[in-house]
Amino acid sequence: MSLLDVSQLSVKYESFTALKDVNFSVENGEFLAVLGENGSGKTTLIKAILGLKEPHSGIITWEKGIRLGYLPQHLNVQDRSFPATVKEVILTGALAYQKGFKRPTLAMHQKLDTLLADFSIAHLKHQRIGTLSGGQQQRVLLARTLMSDPDILIMDEPTSALDSSMRSTFYDLLKDLNEGGMTMMLITHDVGSASDVLDRVIYLDQTIIFDGTFADYCENAAISPYIHTHATHTHEVHK
């Protein structure tokens, strides 16, 4: 059985159809990118598979007992005065799944320190998250997600706040996690920096226009004007 099965998914906002008849599966260990222009339904697809938006029709089936990791585009909290330290934020990733009376364990603290060291943000442990740069905040959010040992990491434009050198470091990190067995689902409108790590590409424009390997995606540029534009851009980035 697949990790995720999406069958005949349609999502509407009142009379506007954001997604129509979307069908795909995600297999264990894949590194998948969902591409598409702004307004193509990428964010709606994420909301639907995360259970944040009720589908109009269709079925979304997760493998039983699966643990989801979600990395948002940026902090949902834009208020820089929010009183929360890096440590407090990262610990919520593990505590969310703790049963019963929730308290941080020694193992959680050890994992927190390891992740902080891995992401070169150990010196920020007790700082308020609102004082961090965009890149540092993104690493904190990734650390929060990884605290729960997710089976799949779903990312919504995760590199939008990062500069080009930080993007490539970020994707190297994701590649390592993927090689360690974690399934990756990346939603982006710019595949450039991620092209080296992708197994598969889905191109979305309300429905799925392309679903295949990254090489096929580039080769089949003539299928659609959208893909042509995107693939050309990708090749340019590659050079």
């Binding site: 259970g51 948002p72 919520t92 969310a96």
Partner: peptide, 13 residues
Amino acid sequence: FSMTYDPVFAEVS
């Protein structure tokens, strides 16, 4: 705390 800080992440978690 989790849902006050980031309600979307809390709901997904």
